[in-house]
């Protein structure tokens, strides 16, 4: 059933990716494809490199000094680590939602409009339109439409996280990276985000890092298991969770370690 609507077009390919923090090798020859309009879950124990890998995809690691990247990551056949690539533009095309909700200390409206404004959109009507659309997409509209001009910090944690998703969607990225987006949320808020991920995949390619095995099973089409900086196994979620090829994967999924 799942396989039937899988379009097997790779949107992002990582090939032989090595990543170093100073002398420490944090990622060891990672090669993986992320397909268009699919949700891929990255799982693995803490410190396995899954978040580091995620942050390679929009070059967020560039902010850290002393890092080094080898190998390549291509988005639509374009190497994102080539100096030809403008990182700013890249990040606009690849949205990111962070572990903890991090709304700006601005109004709800300003938060969502921010990405549009820095990217040069000046048309007020257009901004308003897009803000509404993004907040609706993030399933937050009914809750905040009366108070768009209140501070975003007055929202609950779950609402803040959905606002951050809306903020990421507003610039119409092609890919959405989510770094444990529910780890700071309660079960009800988590459920809402998961439903959201399900609808969003119609439009976006989504890569989600999660600690939560059930979440990976519920939300993703493909699951990739990371351990000690290596990609141990990647495949259709159903397969990974029912009959993984590697022993490590099975041990992790069945809760024997991690």
């Amino acid at each position: 059933m799942k396989a039937s609507h899988m379009t097997q077009t790779p949107k992002i390919t990582a090939h032989n990716l090595n990543f170093y923090y100073g002398k420490v090798k944090a990622l060891d020859s990672i090669s993986i494809d992320f397909n268009l309009n699919q949700v891929t879950a990255l799982i693995g124990p803490s410190g396995c490199g899954k978040s580091t890998f995620l942050r390679c995809l929009n070059r967020m690691n560039d902010l850290i000094t002393g890092i080094r990247v080898e190998g390549e990551i291509k988005i639509d056949d374009q190497d994102i680590y080539a100096p030809a690539v403008d990182v700013v533009n890249l990040r606009r095309r690849i949205g990111m939602v962070f572990q903890k909700p991090n709304p700006f200390p601005k109004t709800i409206f300003e938060n969502v409009a921010y990405g549009l404004k820095v990217n040069g959109v000046t048309d007020k009507n257009l901004i308003a339109e897009r803000v509404e659309k993004s907040i609706r997409q993030a399933a937050l509209w009914e809750e905040v439409k009366e108070r768009l001009h209140d501070s975003a910090l007055g929202l609950s944690g779950g609402q803040q996280q959905r606002l951050c998703i809306a903020r990421a969607l507003a610039v119409e990225p092609e890919v959405l990276l989510m770094d444990e987006p529910c780890s700071a949320l309660d079960p009800i808020a988590t459920q809402k985000i998961e439903e959201l991920i399900h609808t969003l995949k119609e439009t976006y390619t989504i890569i989600i890092v999660t600690h939560n095995m059930q979440q990976a099973a519920r939300t993703s089409d493909v699951t990739a298991f990371f351990y000690m900086g290596k990609l141990i196994e990647a495949g259709e979620t159903d397969t990974i969770f029912t009959k993984p090829a590697k022993r490590r994967t099975e041990e992790y999924i069945t809760g024997r370690f991690g």
Partner: peptide, 18 residues
């Protein structure tokens, strides 16, 4: 350049695209 796994040297020579 776009096809081969571009080495660091090659990358340096490329002109900004975006």
């Amino acid at each position: 350049e776009s096809q081969t796994a571009s080495s660091l040297e090659n990358r340096k020579q490329q002109k900004p695209l975006f």
